[in-house]
Amino acid sequence: MTTTAITAIIVILYLIGAPILGGILAGLDRIITARMQGRYGPPVWQPFYDVLKLMSKEKAAVNKTQNFYVFCFLLFMIFTGAVFFAGGDLLLVLFALTLASIFLVLGAFSSNSPYSFIGAERELIQTMAYEPMVLITAAGMYLATKSFFVADIAAFSTPLIYYLPGIFIGFVYILTIKFRKSPFDLSTSHHAHQELVKGLTTEFSGPTLAMIEIAHWYENIFLLGIVYLFFAFNPLLGVIVALLTYFLEILIDNSNARVTWQLTMKSAWIVAATLGMANLIIVFFKLSV
């Protein structure tokens, strides 16, 4: 088989498998969270039931453009993951990711609700908070492997984590923002219990909300894919570390209050500037001499 054919198969597998895996992960998340809180929790399949139910609901949108934006969000999220798992350019992947989230923000802005309006503003602030660290991650991977292509990075013989421990920690730190977990679930949280009701997603309902859910499943699998990259020299280890990271996020989610956006921003940048930058500089010198 040619490499193109293999790539095509992987992409198709991703298109079908990611939402399933992502949904199961979300279901496990809810069970573990419930256990941590002393509750029973729902069945593993609950996220799928939720999405199916949302699908069957009436389409009620504040305005038509909203659905278009959300559709673009889903589309670019899928595109991001597809390029990533096809072994494409990491920079393209990361900017497609940003583009996707900008579409969601636009969707929230387009409905004149003050809740989603402020939620959208906060989402932008969050994007600003995590973006430097994401770029540093890409730069670090490039410095270590001399390639921006995910396929090359994954095939790199020495463990990436050996070069980039600081960047790994920094990336896990901002993952909390990306996964929308406490303490950084500012713009929207998993449960509608904050001053902004549901923030960013307040004005979405029915099939539109289902699209956002599915997009998040794609997104989560893709993000864990980046975590995997750090340990790609040993696929089994990579998967285990990715799952452990997710568990760590759940633990952090359950032992923190939601902090203010000022602290989110400050801490994410401090982490990027110290752990990220220091690691980058060290790798730069180590590999250039």
């Binding site: 969270t33 941590m36 809180q37 002393g38 509750r39 406490s182 303490p183 679930d185 949280s189 449960h191 219990h193 904050q194 359950n254 032992s255 923190n256 209050a257 939601r258």
Partner: peptide, 13 residues
């Protein structure tokens, strides 16, 4: 109060 500052686990406990 825990719920108000977004700390669900504390709320439950």
């Amino acid at each position: 109060m825990a719920d108000a500052f977004g700390f669900e686990a504390l709320f439950m406990h």
